[in-house]
């Protein structure tokens, strides 16, 4: 009897391990899009000695149609600070506040596990290696490197015991990332392209799969149609895409077959840009989800965001 009960709890916890892909994607999507694109970074400058603050709200749901009927909801508020160290160097710090909730059918009924708190903090440095400025337009290339530090709690428990690693607020690991972003901006439109790689390392006998992403953004000024004098506010229509691939997670050194895979998002959005403030919103809709095994599929990711020059 006792063994049967243990097996049920074990099965429940195992199910909790499965929503790996959406959780990680959300974490990685919190990169500091401090200027132009909504869902990723840009190569546009931060003035030396000046700062930008960004607060985002991200809401993600993921689910499956299997017998467990898993429902994952994640609400996230990444707080981003950006500082222009020099005209070429910009430093970023990202601290997310997370609420994760998983509901799943088990042999003992439908269960819910939830956790809230600050997650892992990411620090990034970006350097502009190429810059070509002309009247009313700029083209830049800027590599960046960073480190996700284990500031989030990675030993959270509830009445059922320790939460599975994928539901924890923090990974417990030190995870470096590298990438490069390029931006071409004119007074009418902007294109951003970025590619990045995150090397996830092991902690708590668990290692998230490495993450590669390729991002593309097009922004078109839809208002004002004709530019007047001074610095008018711009309304941009935005269309972005994010191609994200993640490797298998490893549990005790063994690959988890129900984790990792590739997802292609299309994200229409809108952006209101003034001299000091940006208000924006986008919805990332998964066009293609080629996930491994029984990994959870994303339904959508909603982003609301606010940026302020100071």
């Amino acid at each position: 009897m006792k063994r049967t009960r243990q097996a049920k709890w074990f099965g429940f916890i195992q199910q909790g391990l499965q929503p790996v892909v959406p959780l990680l994607l959300l974490t990685f999507l919190a990169l500091p899009a401090f200027a132009a694109p909504i869902t990723f970074n840009t190569a546009l400058p931060v003035a030396q000695g000046e700062g930008i603050f960004r607060a985002q709200f991200k809401y993600l749901t993921a689910s499956d149609d299997g017998p467990e009927d898993r429902d994952l909801t994640v609400a996230m508020v990444p707080l981003v600070g950006v500082y222009g160290l020099t005209e070429k160097w910009a430093l970023f710090g990202i601290l997310p506040y997370l609420n994760k909730e998983l509901e799943v059918n088990t042999a003992v009924g439908r269960r819910r596990r939830e956790v809230s708190g600050f997650g892992d903090t990411t620090f990034l440095a970006r350097y502009t290696v190429f810059q070509q400025d002309r009247p009313g337009q700029t083209f830049r290339i800027a590599p960046f490197a960073g480190l996700e530090t284990p500031t989030g709690e990675d030993g959270e428990k509830d009445s059922l015991g320790r939460l599975p690693q994928t539901l924890q607020l923090g990974s417990g690991s030190w995870d470096p990332l590298l990438g490069v972003v390029s931006t071409w901006q004119t007074l009418e439109r902007q294109i951003d392209v970025a590619i990045s790689y995150k090397f996830n390392t092991a902690a708590n006998n668990f290692e998230f799969g490495d993450l590669v992403r390729f991002d593309l953004s097009y922004q078109h000024r839809i208002w004002p149609r004709e530019l007047g004098s001074g610095v008018p506010a711009f309304l941009y229509g935005v269309l972005e895409s994010n191609l994200i691939w993640q490797g298998h997670n490893a549990v005790d050194g063994h690959d988890d077959p129900d984790s990792g895979g590739a997802t292609l998002y299309l994200a229409p959005g809108i952006q209101w840009v003034t001299k000091r403030t940006v208000l924006e919103s986008a919805v990332q809709i998964p066009l293609i989800q080629n996930l491994n095994g029984n990994a959870l599929e994303n339904d959508f990711i909603l982003t609301l965001s606010f940026r302020r020059n100071f």
């Binding site: 003035a47 000046e50 700029t138 007074l187 530019l227 610095v231 008018p232 840009v273 940006v278």
Partner: peptide, 30 residues
């Protein structure tokens, strides 16, 4: 050269206001 969005214009304005003897800075995007 290169200034092509309102959010970037703020940094230009703020930096130019630190130039000695300057009272006012007026940026024109167009």
């Amino acid at each position: 050269d290169g200034m092509s969005c309102p959010f970037c214009a703020f940094g230009v304005e703020k930096k130019l206001k630190t130039v000695n003897g300057t009272d006012e800075v007026v940026v024109d995007m167009k």
